[in-house]
Amino acid sequence: MSGFKRDRQGNAKKFDGPKPAPKPKSIVRNACTPLFEHLRDELDEHHDRRDRIGKASRDITALSKKIIFSLQRVRKIDDELPQEIQADIDLRLAEIAKLLASIAPEVQNINRLRYARSLVCLEELVEALTFAHYVKTQTLIDHDELSRIVEDLARQGAASEDVAMPDASEDAAQKPSQAAELPTVSITDDDYLYGVFDLTGEMMRFATTASALTGKMASGDSAAADDAPRTIVEDMHDLGSFFEMLPLRSGNRVAWEKKLEVMRQSVHKVEKLGYDRVVRGSERPAGWVPDLSSTDQPEGLE
């Protein structure tokens, strides 16, 4: 208490109100200010974290899309992807791994779902990974296996970060790097389901280009000993029925139904392809290539 305020007459003012009478114009301090300052710090922490996650998320989305584009250059379902495509994908996955590792400490426990909306990249990543798995094995990877892959990615990313720049790690939380104890990013049911929804679109594109360019319906290796290997048409039907049979999600009905509708269209398109192959495909001589590829296949080939 250095002194008291005086009024115009020079008498000491009684100072019992919540705020000083002559208000300074710039920062008004009052009884509420400390309360709000505390809450501001809490909100800032939240906003900053959301921004960091959002940035990483955008990068992961972009990288996942690039993986998908690379995979769309594959023409057949085979265990071994063409070398340059595999190399390309590995490169992108390594980058994704680093990004995942950087946000992993931020999305533990309660924060995982708090920032679920900023983590839409995971849907895209699921799409890329399920598609890669399909192109290699012609099966749908299940949720648990996929989660393991993503968790491994996050751990790898953290490990490589440590080797590359041992003292530049941004998060103090990363320093005690007990390999197995490293925080990872988990894949929720929604990430998985919505990612698989998008997978149907990619399969449709894959089926279309593959059948146009190779003149065959994409299918498993004929070495699988079955007389007629399963084609992508059947797989699409399987996926279609899979989603139709699942109960309606009560969470976000609109989004779910929209995805369902898009998926149905993809199924119909592939169906049409299958029909074309059966009806017209048999009329075409082997090696006949449709118009789509006429640029790289001269007419005279027939």
């Binding site: 012609q138 099966t139 749908l140 498993g220 699988a224 000993a225 079955d226 399963r230 399987d238 996926l239």
Partner: peptide
């Protein structure tokens, strides 16, 4: 026999 598309 190839594995099915979707594990039941």
């Amino acid at each position: 026999m190839a594995p099915p598309m979707i594990d039941p």
